[in-house]
Design a protein around this nucleic acid. Sequence first.
DNA 1: CCGTCAATACCGACCGGTTGGTATGTAGCT
DNA 2: AGCTACATACCAACCGGTCGGTATTGACGG
Lengths: 199, 199
Amino acid sequence: MGRSKADGGAGVRERILAAAGALFAEQGYDATSVQQVVDRAGVTKGGLYHYFGAKEDLLVELYRAVFGQRLAALEKILAQGRDPEWTLRAIIDDIVVGTAAMMTESAAVSRELAHMDSDRTQRLQADWRRYQEAVRGLIRDAQAAGVFAAVASPELVSWSIFGVTTTLHTWYRPDGPQSADQIARELADLVLTGLTARP
Amino acid sequence: MGRSKADGGAGVRERILAAAGALFAEQGYDATSVQQVVDRAGVTKGGLYHYFGAKEDLLVELYRAVFGQRLAALEKILAQGRDPEWTLRAIIDDIVVGTAAMMTESAAVSRELAHMDSDRTQRLQADWRRYQEAVRGLIRDAQAAGVFAAVASPELVSWSIFGVTTTLHTWYRPDGPQSADQIARELADLVLTGLTARP
DNA sequence: CCGTCAATACCGACCGGTTGGTATGTAGCT
DNA sequence: AGCTACATACCAACCGGTCGGTATTGACGG
């Protein structure tokens, strides 16, 4: 069995992560056994535990892959210092398109995030809360400045946005009638029309 | 009357269901063992399997308790035959307040619904889809009649509403600053302002 | 009012199978 | 020789579910 190079093209570590992401998205974290992951990745358990210390590390790594990009994009958007309407639209666009681009991994992470509470995941959840607080702050400031109407609290608005993206995997299909760009634009239109409508 | 052991006064069946709902919400369905459920309910495994045929039946029962009420309320609202704005507002109010009133059970169900695929649960998911289709149809008709603006597709609007409610458990606290009524009103305001704003 | 019997409610030890994780081995490169 | 990168074999713990048994209840004949 000469399988040393040019196997699936990707490295073993990446194959394991991809298999884990797909299986977690399909069946859930707990319902997926380590054996299933290594079978799909075409390696053995020894191989997996060579690269990862525990099953939970797979989830953490997936989380980093998905969320690290979002956080980096957010800071880039905020750094531009543009008006609230443009900024919120850019955030919505990034989170929808970015989530759609890594659908399986995002689905796994958003579905399973809640039942991790070990020390390591604590930090990741803190990052996620920081992201949300940035969005809420943006809305709060714009409402205080009179740019956005106070139809709804910053909390409610931000949760509407995140609610759509965390449940995106239950209805979005890459080959469906609506593209990710379209969804992002519609969501931004709905939210921003609500926030900027004149009485 | 002869209660043998210290209990909450409720029947064994109800105690088991309540314990299961709480544990599923806290840890997830797969991560919760039958042993944990019976420990919290103060009974034994034999007792649980006297009332329920399988672990999955607990989820199904919980689902019925949560969703049956929503479906009944929807039909009552639609039966009134009022205008789309009033109807959509009533639906949003019911789903938010109703979900908040059974927070732990709703959290368990909405989180775990995705990875059930046995025959019995298939039917329940069909009911859920019917609920969604009713909301989408309402929006679609109102948009066609010119009552609602076409800022966003019926699908996107409906998913915004359901996205908030299925993620409600991650941020709503009964003793928090915002009551369920307030959240419902704000969500309805945000959505309906977006849908009825004049250009 | 009592004794009997059958049904119901519940117990707890137990089962086969699966789980996450590990100890040990080895092939190839440096 | 020593290190990395995996494979193989294996384990203790735990899983959902079963089963033979007991305590409690209620209907009924006498």
